[in-house]
Computed example of a mutant assay.
Amino acid sequence: MKKRKNLGKNSIILILAVVIIFIAYLGSPLSKVRNVTVEGVNDLGAQQVIDATDINNNSLLVNVMIDHQTIANKTMKKLPSIETVSFKTHNLRDIVIKVKEFKTLGLIYKNGYYYRVINGGHIINQKMHSPIGNYPIYSGFNDKKSLKKISKIYKKLPDNVRTNVSQFYNSPTKLNPYRVKIDMNDGNKVVADIRTVQAKMKYYPGIAAQMKQKGVINLEIGAYSYPFKAKK
């Protein structure tokens, strides 16, 4: 009986000691986040992600880890181009934010702002004042179906062609309602048919290399090029 009482007394003392140590820990600088780093960002800036989480040097590490899902949901709401976000600790005082962004397939300009276009022609509702990265701008693709189609085409272009694309224009005519125009970063312009442009753009580097001056490469029917008209 005496042993049982002593055991109970020792357990209470141990629990009280743990509580006191934990309270002391929470009141010490050791309980607060020291450094925050971000992994996996592509189009977003690391500081942009940190600001969205509201984690700073005054944040308690234990609170961050307990409320990690709430913080993650809040971060993705503020930055909808983030697909997933998670947190891990490092050195018992540092936080690493791991981010996975939706793959950007281009940008669309609406009402004074640029927006990211991702898989399926989805537009991320996150305003940008200026274009980011080396992504094409889609003009005239005003419905989701056409935007999905052109962004899918862009995604499947050869690497050396895809990085050279500056802007896609939906440019239908009475003779060809499927016509598109493409501005290239090297200064040339392409006229093509949206139904065949993906297959034909692989010939672009070879045709462009044979051109003596910048001009238009027409891929609607066949493939030929001609220089820009000289301005008078």
Rank of each mutant, 00 (worst) to 15 (best):
H68E: 12
V161K: 06
I118D: 00
N164S: 11
K202D: 09
I12Y: 10
A209G: 07
Q213I: 00
N35K: 12
S11I: 15
T173A: 12
Q69N: 12
D67Q: 15
S139H: 07
I55K: 03
K103P: 14
K202A: 15
V62W: 03
L61A: 04
N134D: 14
N170L: 06
M1D: 07
A223L: 11
N170F: 13
F228T: 09
I15E: 04
V85F: 09
I20Y: 09
Y135W: 12
P158R: 00
I221A: 06
F87Y: 13
K3N: 14
V190G: 01
P131H: 02
N42M: 04
K212W: 00
I21P: 03
T84M: 11
Q48K: 14
K9V: 07
D193G: 13
N57S: 14
S166T: 02
T53L: 10
R162E: 08
N176S: 10
V197C: 08
Q126C: 02
E39M: 11
I124T: 06
S59P: 13
I71P: 07
V18R: 04
A223S: 14
D51G: 08
A52L: 06
S86T: 14
I95E: 06
D159Y: 09
Y115Q: 02
V161Y: 03
K152T: 15
V33S: 01
D183Q: 09
K74G: 09
I108T: 10
D51L: 07
Y224D: 04
F168V: 01
Q48E: 15
G187Q: 05
P136F: 03
N125S: 12
F141R: 06
S225M: 03
R162S: 13
P29S: 13
N6P: 00
D51S: 13
I221D: 08
M76A: 09
K5N: 11
L92D: 11
D193E: 12
N10A: 15
I108E: 12
G45F: 09
L107N: 02
K155Y: 08
K148H: 11
A208H: 03
K231G: 02
H122M: 07
K74C: 05
R195Q: 11
V33Y: 02
I132E: 13
N164R: 03
V64R: 03
N218E: 05
D143W: 01
Y25E: 05
P158A: 02
T196H: 05
Y178R: 14
T84F: 12
R162H: 08
L147E: 06
H90K: 14
H122R: 09
N6D: 10
Q47I: 05
I118P: 03
N42Q: 11
E39W: 05
P205Y: 02
Y135M: 10
K32G: 05
N142E: 13
K202T: 14
K145V: 12
R116G: 01
P172W: 04
D143Q: 04
D94F: 03
G215I: 08
I20T: 14
I217D: 02
I221L: 11
S86H: 04
N91G: 01
L61S: 08
